[in-house]
Simulated scan of single mutants.
Amino acid sequence: MSHPDTHESSAQSPHAEPLSLTAVSDQLASAVEHAALSVVAVHARERLASTGVHWRDGLIVTTDATVRREQNITITIPDGRRVAATLVGRDAASDLAVLRVAAGVSFAPATIGDPTTLRPGHLAMAVARLDDSGPRVSFGAISTIGHAWRTWKGGEYSRRIQSGFALYPGFGGSPLVDAAGRVHGINSGGLSQQLATTIPADTVERVVSQLVATGYVPRGWLGAALQAVRVGESAKVAAQGREGGLLIIGVAESGPAATSGLLVGDIVLALDGAAVHEPHDVLDVLQHMAPGRAVSFDLLRGGVFVRVIVTIGERPSGHDDRRSRRGAR
């Protein structure tokens, strides 16, 4: 009978030597040890700390939902010391916040991995730190790798990464760590109630760069509430054959829609010639559009085709700050 440590699995490469359970366990422990060198506890709320990662250049990344105060923030670094940190910027839409560690404090930055190399079934861990007692770990496997997606708050992620490990209290802001100790993203407790959801490393890098540059992430803003509607048969000629669009059901006072002449009751058919069918079609356009850009809106107004030029504004500060504390681990 073969010893369990030497039994070859049919799933293994025929050219790979099988690893014993002990060797796999030791490898994972080494990966945690390496990743933990860049993991900190973030003290920015009452009672329970959250987790952060030394991303680069003295910058600590954590989740926005776990930063409850913007002053008197401290972090516990891997050697157990508690030091001061300042808030660089935050973005509720992507659930990311960036802190800067106090001058003169030095410790290892994370080894950043490539999220495109992850596959369902890969072993993965969340590595947290809540105090000076050392790292804490939640273990599982990658469950889902999906396409680019938008959160309910409007944040845009390069891919969907979900894992089967639990995000315990304080694990918000923890890194997703692979078996080699590489960090592939930041775990957020507020994006899903079923599986741990990770903000991919490339998305984190993009948001960090924007927060360092400006303190916030500028996003285009229309200032209108929209809902999908169908165009009646009698209006299809005026609608240039389109069967549906977006009914404007509200406009923000002094917002871009109002100041550009959009009215409640208008049906938006297209933006710069591209048809729109659902509110997220407009969000997709605004997400990548710099404030100040002029956009052509094709409308159906009172059964008549109208074209209005709208100057896109910048989303007001705090407009997307309706943070859900549910799941802010």
Rank of each mutant, 00 (worst) to 15 (best):
I73S: 01
A224T: 07
A126K: 05
V83R: 07
R219D: 01
H7Q: 15
A16Q: 13
V207E: 04
V268D: 07
G250N: 14
G215S: 09
A65P: 00
P18T: 09
H288M: 03
V61S: 08
V40Y: 07
P256H: 04
G241V: 06
A41H: 01
T74E: 08
L28K: 01
R293E: 12
L222M: 11
G313N: 10
A166M: 13
E70W: 06
A85Q: 08
Q287N: 13
V229E: 13
L246Q: 05
H3Y: 13
R100I: 01
E233F: 12
A110Q: 07
G173Y: 04
V282Y: 11
P291I: 01
A93L: 04
R56D: 14
T116C: 05
G185N: 07
M125H: 01
P200A: 02
H288L: 11
T151C: 12
V127D: 06
Q71W: 00
V285L: 15
I77N: 02
S20V: 00
A225I: 10
P291W: 09
L87F: 09
R323T: 14
S188Y: 06
A23P: 02
A23C: 00
I199D: 11
G245F: 06
P279Q: 11
V208M: 10
I75E: 05
D272C: 01
A328R: 10
V88R: 11
A102L: 01
R82A: 09
A85Y: 08
D114L: 02
A108L: 13
P109G: 00
L99Y: 05
H280M: 14
R242P: 06
H34R: 15
P291F: 11
A16E: 15
G134Y: 12
T111S: 10
I75C: 10
D298T: 13
L123V: 10
E70H: 12
I145P: 08
S50I: 00
V268S: 11
G190P: 02
G104T: 03
A275D: 11
D132R: 15
R219Q: 08
D114Y: 01
A102M: 03
H277G: 14
D321R: 10
E46K: 03
D298Q: 11
A166V: 12
H7L: 14
R150M: 15
F165H: 14
T259S: 13
L48V: 12
D95Q: 07
S138F: 02
A252K: 14
R160K: 15
T117E: 14
L246P: 07
G134M: 09
I145C: 09
P175F: 00
V98M: 06
Q240C: 00
A35L: 03
D26G: 04
E8T: 14
V276Q: 07
R182I: 00
E46G: 13
P175K: 02
V251F: 02
A257K: 05
S10C: 00
L247D: 09
I267C: 07
V61Q: 14
G155P: 14
G220D: 10
L191E: 10
G215P: 12
A65K: 05
A228T: 15
T76M: 02
V251S: 04
D202Q: 05
S158G: 09
S9F: 10
A102F: 02
